[in-house]
Computed example of a mutant assay.
Amino acid sequence: MATTTGEARAGTAQPASLQLPGIVLGVGLGGFVDGILLHQLLQWHHMLTSTNQDHIGVKYYNPKTVSGLEMNTVWDGIFHTVCWIAVLLGLAILYSRVTHSRRRVWTSRVLWGWVLVGWGLFNLVEGVLDHHILGIHHVYAGEGQVWWDIGFLVLGALLVAGGYLLQRSGRPFDPSAPTRREARRA
């Protein structure tokens, strides 16, 4: 914490150690929001609900049938497993990098900005890949589905931009530097 925001931007290296764990956490948490809200609560789609119109030839599992819903639920579970692993990995990286002031990191704009960037990146990658390139599902299938898919991408871009601005507005956070109180004790 020896540098000020101006000095960090003027050329001295700003600690970037919250960037990777924040982004990885954001990817996992963004995936959970998608899976819990859109797959489970609203039931707008599951992982394979548009494979009758996909671009790669995946077998169609109609979510309106018991066997189709079972297969979509299995793939939703695989999706949630990947999200869970991303959250655990993000927490592990964060824990390994933050050696002092662990409580303080959770109030850091830098960390939460990078989490929003990760969530936005999740939306952008998942939206382009699953909705547009593969076509295995859409945000809300049916008439106007392209607008729902585009809205998902716009939300992702806004999350990336907002998260980037939030982390830039935060104080540089060096997770390995002791606080003044910890330095006095040593």
Rank of each mutant, 00 (worst) to 15 (best):
A177Q: 09
R185C: 07
E7N: 09
G26M: 06
S50D: 13
L18S: 12
W148H: 10
W147H: 15
T107M: 10
I23D: 04
S169E: 13
L166C: 00
G163C: 10
V27F: 05
M71I: 15
S50Y: 03
W75N: 10
K64P: 03
E143R: 13
V105T: 09
G11W: 04
W114L: 00
G35W: 02
P15E: 08
V125K: 06
R103G: 11
Y95H: 15
G11Q: 06
N62L: 09
L88H: 12
Q19I: 10
T99K: 06
W44Q: 11
R180Y: 08
V66W: 08
Y140D: 15
R171C: 06
L116I: 00
H138R: 12
G144T: 11
G118V: 00
G163N: 03
N72C: 10
A92K: 03
Q14C: 13
G120Y: 01
G28F: 02
R104L: 13
R9M: 12
Y164A: 12
E7S: 12
H39A: 04
E126W: 05
F32K: 04
L158I: 12
L111M: 14
L20E: 02
R184L: 13
A92D: 10
H132I: 07
L129C: 07
D76A: 13
V58T: 08
E143F: 11
R109Y: 13
F152K: 05
V66F: 13
V160E: 02
A186W: 06
I78M: 14
V98A: 12
A10Y: 10
G57P: 10
G35A: 15
L159P: 02
L25D: 08
N123S: 05
V98N: 11
L159F: 05
D130F: 08
L18Y: 06
V105K: 00
L94H: 03
D149H: 01
L153F: 04
T51I: 02
W84N: 09
F122C: 00
I93F: 08
T107G: 06
S169M: 07
I136V: 12
A10G: 08
C83D: 04
M1C: 14
H131V: 07
H80K: 14
G26K: 01
W119D: 02
